[in-house]
């Protein structure tokens, strides 16, 4: 690695190096050093006290979801639409041999701009799991419990948000997937009843 770095440091035939080249070289050096350090650092304490949350985008807005509330994250490849499906129920998809109903998160949250193609599917629901489609997963971050601020869910549309978290200077609502899954199941049930 160091030899490559030295080769990288040489600037051709000795001509002066420009400022952007110096910044890029420094960035690469920092990246390599962090990468090497990750292997050299001792294992961290398993007794961590933080909470892992996913920063996501749905309906054009940012939200956070506790990683402990979901059963898996998968790439949304092919969704087969259902006839006479209620709004928000995008269809069925197969993941590792199982069928999941795909619900748009924006539709479950009642957002007006939910009709977007999901990139990722969040599996949730326990024994009766469903796939919740989100537009993007921005990051998976570890937050301390102190950063999770409880809120009153008095407002309509924010019934699935119990607490807020600030990620990268932006306050996001932490979604409660249980109620969202219940709402999805309820809508699907209403459809089944309507169909029968």
């Amino acid at each position: 690695m160091n030899g490559r770095s030295q080769e990288w440091d040489r600037s051709g035939d000795g001509a002066p190096v420009s400022a952007p080249a110096i910044a890029a070289e420094r960035h690469v050096t920092d990246l390599r050093r962090a990468f090497d350090a990750s292997f050299a650092a001792p294992p961290r304490d398993a007794e961590r006290s933080g909470e892992l949350v996913l920063a996501i985008q749905a309906g054009g807005q940012g939200y956070a979801i506790r990683l402990s509330d979901i059963d898996g994250v998968h790439e949304c490849r092919k969704v087969v639409p259902l006839p006479e499906a209620p709004p928000g129920l995008l269809g069925l998809t197969g993941i590792r041999g199982r069928l999941f109903a795909v619900h748009a998160l924006g539709a479950l949250l009642g957002l007006p701009t939910w009709n977007e193609k999901p990139r990722w599917l969040l599996i949730a629901g326990g024994d009766e799991p469903i796939a919740i489609g989100v537009a993007s997963i921005e990051a998976c971050l570890e937050v301390s419990p102190a950063d999770l601020v409880p809120v009153d869910s008095a407002k309509e549309g924010e019934a699935h948000v119990r607490e807020f978290v600030t990620l990268a200077g932006q306050a996001r609502g932490v979604l409660v997937l249980e109620s969202l899954v219940a709402r999805a199941l309820k809508r699907a049930g209403e459809r089944r009843e309507g169909a029968s």
Partner: peptide
């Protein structure tokens, strides 16, 4: 890889105490 790591984390959380080191 990130998604796989997220899933691995989820699996580690689901595994409870035994999956904690794997979660790390």
């Amino acid at each position: 890889t990130n998604i796989l790591a997220i899933n691995a984390t989820i699996e580690a959380v689901s595994a409870g105490e035994t999956g904690r080191r794997f979660g790390v």
